[in-house]
Design a protein around this nucleic acid. Structure first.
Lengths: 186, 186
DNA sequence: CCACGTAGCGACAGTCACTGACGCTATCAG
DNA sequence: CTGATAGCGTCAGTGACTGTCGCTACGTGG
């Protein structure tokens, strides 16, 4: 295993986050990111597909946790409850990454281009969840619906948690899922 | 009001859709689109913010219908039922645009860059729906949740309708909303 | 019928994200 | 010590997008 690029990759991640926060996404060039990470611009593009991807580098880990949790859920559990379990399984990871996630969120919040990528990322996660539910025997269209509704509940819980990180995120997720079922009235 | 750009704009829309279908999104340049529409490349960018936007030009109309329908819904209706009404109000527009929407969908389906933009567009719609629900007195977080769940139900209905355009889309929407409420089990 | 103001347009130059190709080098297995 | 390989730098190139400037088509007021 010649040369370990993970160091450079980590430096690029940090450099990009810093620069995006300092002067904004649009005002920083990939050349500047590369320079701060002390690599060539070409190397940046060897590690990340484009200027946006740097900010979304941890996704695979989350994805794996969600898929495993769906697969491990007991048989006969209702789809939405499976989603609650899956997202609850990811809570430790989310809590651990909270401070970095906050900084990322600040940048994304003021950058349409990054919001677009963020939407695509969550869409990718719902695709994976849909497939995982489908593997459990849930019909495709229903699996997709459940994945999206579960994701919506998770987002609702995440936002509440962001405003008050003291409460248990897992509890908020369960509560948000319950709230979904009250949306139809009576 | 000197010069009416709407003609050129329409030609650009048609030219882009044609080219994207003929040779694919990545393989067509904005210069080619402009050339086929018989305008300069600069004019393309006066009408559309970027290479993707050409394909998403009708959105404002849909947005207006949804907002109006939410505002016009009777008081005391449950949030999810309001969503069903809103999307049902948009059915005529959707049916009318079906053939063009199909062509667009084909291109989007094979182009990640366009999928990303499509996600952003639906996110924009849910934002608007959230605001409209909020204006009816629904709490912000609940409004957002309802908007997202409603959008998920609408997508589920749309997909079913795409596979069988004979059935009534409005009925599918109502059914999808009901299905959401069964996702939690018992 | 004629200035005249305005919105759209073309032309041009420039920046920057991103890609392909080539050759080099650090590192590890043998 | 040597060879294989993954990561890297350099260079050249394409194409999306922007700012600027001057022009022109067209409806309006005289």
């Amino acid at each position: 295993m010649p040369r370990d690029g993970s160091k450079a990759r980590a430096r690029l991640r940090a450099a990009a986050l810093d620069l995006y926060r300092e002067r904004g996404y649009d005002e920083t060039t990939t050349a500047q990111i590369a320079a701060r990470a002390e690599v060539s611009e070409r190397t940046y593009f060897r590690h990340f597909a484009d200027k946006r991807e740097v900010l979304f580098d941890g996704e695979a880990e989350l994805r794996a946790i969600l898929v495993d949790a769906v697969a491990a859920a007991p048989d006969g559990l209702a789809p939405l409850q499976v989603m609650v379990r899956a997202f609850s399984a990811a809570v430790p990871l989310i809590v651990a990454n909270r401070s970095v996630a906050e900084q990322r969120a600040e940048v994304i919040a003021v950058t349409p281009a990054l919001q677009e990528r963020a939407y695509a990322k969550t869409a990718g996660l719902t695709d994976v969840l849909e497939a995982a539910l489908s593997a459990r025997g849930v019909t495709r269209p229903t699996a997709r619906l459940a994945a999206q509704v579960g994701m919506a509940a998770f987002e609702r819980a995440s936002r509440a948690w962001a405003g008050d990180p003291e409460v248990d995120l897992a509890a908020l997720i369960a509560r948000a899922a319950d709230e979904v079922l009250t949306l139809g009235g009576t």
